[in-house]
């Protein structure tokens, strides 16, 4: 008997119905990029774009997991399907990791409409955002209404992960003077919503004003002013205001790009650009080419300007294809 060609595969049918076993194993396949990954990516592609993706990022210990816990409680009470991706750093020495974010979400663990997955950042530079982006997609296909990504906002790769989220919440804690300087250098720019968590502690309003002052330096958008909200994740203060702000921003996003597919392509272009850059860098650092050697030499001696050298290397790479 001929099998009808476009009948959904059994795994896909189960995934689209929200089957947790299939979702969980699919995440492992995508994270590890094992053989079955391309079948999954092809299978889920027509079923993407329904979930709202919210990133929570900020320095270690500011209360991201605890805040996510309060936020998911609120979402789950509304009957929404919620997926959480909690990223923790891998040890650069052993490659291992202790993934402990979900300890803070223990109070919601029993909820049937919540699915939490811990990811280790591993040591693949740039690859983490690719893996995370695929985990978002497969959760989206599995029917999650909201997908939350928690990452420590410590460096470039975290900023990239945050870029996967269409709504980026940057979390700070009161009185972290130096810390705010660090945020200013990196992740403040990407914040759609800023939160001063632990508002039950002193200096909250001081930090809030500091953050607002920094935002003034940022280029203003015609359709959105980044709010600076105070929350206390442990007692729930301000969490429904945060939730409202996230929803409001979702409306702004919908206005901006009525064509969702285009956004997916932009995200893919960014992932590809990162991946190409990583690969080229790795190849260059391992090269033994004499020509590269002489280019470096010329730049060192001031015979060649840095920009010219960059262009020359790119030309050289292209001409080799």
């Amino acid at each position: 008997m001929a099998v009808k060609k476009n009948r959904p595969k059994p795994w896909l049918k189960r995934l689209l119905n929200g089957d947790r076993t299939v979702l969980s194993r699919a995440i492992s396949v995508l994270e590890n990029e094992t053989n079955e990954a391309s079948a999954i990516i092809r299978g889920i592609y027509p079923h993407l774009g329904n979930a709202m993706v919210v990133g929570f990022t900020g320095s270690p210990g500011v209360g991201k997991s605890t805040l996510v816990n309060s936020y998911i409680k609120l979402l789950c009470e509304k009957g929404l399907q919620v997926g959480v991706i909690a990223v923790d750093p891998s040890s650069p020495l052993s490659g291992g990791a202790i993934l402990g974010d979900r300890i803070r979400m223990a109070a919601q663990e029993h909820l049937r409409n919540l699915f939490i997955r811990s990811l280790a950042s591993r040591c693949h530079v740039g690859g983490l955002s690719r893996a995370t982006s695929r985990v978002v997609d497969v959760m989206d296909a599995a029917g999650m209404d909201v997908i939350i990504i928690e990452t420590v906002g410590a460096g470039q790769s975290e900023v990239e992960i945050a870029e996967i989220a269409s709504t980026k919440v940057v979390v700070c804690a009161p009185g972290m003077g130096d810390d705010i300087q660090a945020i200013k250098a990196g992740i403040l720019e990407i914040a759609d919503i800023l939160v001063v968590n632990k508002c039950d502690l002193p200096l909250t309003n001081h930090t809030n004003r500091q953050l607002k002052a920094m935002l003034v330096l940022r280029e203003a958008l015609p359709d959105w002013t980044t709010p600076v909200l105070n929350t206390s994740a442990i007692d729930g203060t301000g969490v429904s205001e945060l939730s409202d702000a996230i929803d409001e921003y979702k409306g702004v996003l919908a206005q901006r790009n009525s064509d969702g597919k285009d956004k997916g392509k932009k995200r893919m272009l960014r992932l590809l650009a990162n991946s190409v850059a990583d690969k080229v860098k790795k190849d260059l650092l391992e090269t033994t080419s004499l020509e590269m050697d002489s280019i470096c030499d010329a730049v060192l001696k001031g015979e060649l300007m840095f920009n010219e050298a960059t262009n020359r290397v790119i030309d050289k790479l292209l001409s080799h294809q």
Binding site: R20, T21, S24, R25, I27, S28, S90, S91, L93, S94, G95, G96, A97, I98, L99, G100, R102, I103, A106, E109, H110, F115, I116, R117, S118, A120
Partner: peptide, 30 residues
Amino acid sequence: AWLRDSGMEVIYTAPWQKIDTVVKLTQEED
């Protein structure tokens, strides 16, 4: 800590877990 230091990924929970929760954790974390 031993497992992490030998290169494994460890999902760590607080004590007092219920059996149902452990099953759910096993499932979600694969």
